[in-house]
């Protein structure tokens, strides 16, 4: 009898974890298309610079930062000095400092997965995690971990594919990278509809556009994010007042 119960228990566990795998996979799908094709583009570039699929695999495994890896290709081919590599990396990826803030409590509760969750917090994983609507019965930590893991796998698979067979792919996929833009737009619309307070989104758009117009495409991101933080802190009394009133 107890054996039977245990068997039932295992079945139940498997069933529920399969549900979480499926849920995580569906939520990671928007990233799949973007990452596979962006990854392929990176792999092709790396291969052209003289570094094969093994390099692509290890770079995407250990660095795992979209836009930076494209810059890294030129660093690798010209043998750039390490301090320059370090400073450029810190600068390009400095936006990630702001991402962790919203997940400190959540990630801390994730035990052994905690370091990986921090490591894998890219723009895309951050956005998917922000927009996640978990059904009550699911283990949220498991879902979040799986999403992070799936996303990185897409990126690795893409970059290895690109380095291996990139040149065989006829360039019929130009424009597929728009799926990343579409992902961010969808998440913004979603938040716009569900968030009670819309001021942060408006602040983000305005700071982003002003910085872009003032500073140009290459260097606007960090100033834009810093401006967002400053403006949101200034607006804190009124926004928090609004939230209280809503309750």
């Amino acid at each position: 009898m107890s054996l039977l119960l245990r068997y039932d228990g295992v079945l139940l566990m498997k069933k529920s974890s399969l549900k979480e795998v499926k849920f995580a996979f569906i939520n990671s799908l928007p990233v799949l298309f973007g990452f596979i094709f962006l990854g392929i583009a990176f792999g092709i570039l790396l291969q052209k610079a003289g570094f094969n699929y093994i390099w692509a695999f290890f770079t995407s495994l250990t660095v795992y930062a979209g836009s930076l890896q494209f810059v890294l290709v030129s660093f690798l081919s010209s043998g750039t000095a390490l301090p320059v590599v370090a400073l450029t990396t810190l600068f390009i990826n400095s936006r990630h400092m702001f991402y962790g803030l919203s997940f400190i409590e959540t990630f801390k509760s994730m035990g052994k997965r905690y370091p990986y969750m921090i490591f894998s917090l890219t723009d895309e994983t951050y956005s998917v995690l922000c927009s996640l609507k978990l059904p009550d019965e699911m283990d949220g930590n498991r879902v979040r971990f799986l999403i992070a893991l799936f996303n990185q796998s897409y990126w690795i698979i893409g970059s290895v594919l690109g380095a291996l067979i990139g040149r065989l792919i006829p360039f019929g996929f130009d424009g597929i990278e728009f799926s990343m833009t579409a992902l961010f737009v969808v998440i913004l619309v979603e938040r716009w509809k569900t968030d009670g307070v819309r001021v942060p989104a408006i602040v983000g758009l305005i700071c982003g556009i002003i910085s872009l117009l003032a500073l140009g495409a290459e260097s606007f991101l960090l100033p834009a994010l810093s401006a967002v933080v400053a403006v949101l802190l200034l607006l804190r009394p009124s926004i928090e007042g609004g939230r209280e009133a809503e309750r």
């Binding site: 938040r191 942060p200 758009l205 700071c207 982003g208 872009l212 994010l225």
Partner: peptide
């Protein structure tokens, strides 16, 4: 407070 309000703002910046 920032942790609560930043996601919407950051995603808006990412769209830009």
């Amino acid at each position: 407070y920032l942790a609560a309000v930043l996601p919407s703002a950051i995603i808006a910046v990412l769209v830009v």
